[in-house]
């Protein structure tokens, strides 16, 4: 799978990211790094523990990373979750979190496919 098809699979914007980060080397490096980022597991753990401050920060970080990498789909859902968590818990959190989970899985699957090819 090429880097471009990976972006199609995770519903991101390849043209945008290559326009900003300039080289395919850099984009590939950080796309592969995405799987090591602990923010998603932090988000799950802090929501489980009802630590909404921490959950806000974790969600905020996911959003920031997705913005950097132009992972449009996951950016949108994590952005909504971040806003819902900004002032602590709110009723929409649960539904938005399941959306983030689904989008995260889709993103991670696409990257793993890219990884498998590179290996």
């Amino acid at each position: 799978m090429s880097l471009q098809s990976c972006y199609i699979a995770l519903e991101g914007n390849y043209d945008d990211v290559i326009g900003r980060l300039r080289t395919e080397r850099l984009v590939r490096k950080f796309v592969l790094k995405f799987l090591d980022d602990p923010s998603y597991s932090n988000l799950c753990a802090s929501l489980e523990a009802k630590d909404y401050d921490e959950a806000f920060r974790a969600s905020h970080t996911i959003k920031g990373v997705c913005q950097n990498l132009s992972f449009t789909r996951l950016y949108q859902s994590s952005h909504q979750l971040t806003e819902a968590l900004r002032n602590g818990w709110s009723p929409e959190v649960e539904e938005l979190f399941s959306q983030v989970s689904a989008d995260y899985q889709q993103t991670a699957d696409a990257i793993r496919a890219l990884q498998a090819e590179g290996a």
């Binding site: 980060l21 850099l26 950080f30 995405f34 980022d37 970080t61 920031g64 950097n68």
Partner: peptide
């Protein structure tokens, strides 16, 4: 706080 952001 994000390692990835720092690395970029």
């Amino acid at each position: 706080d994000s390692e990835m952001n720092r690395e970029i």
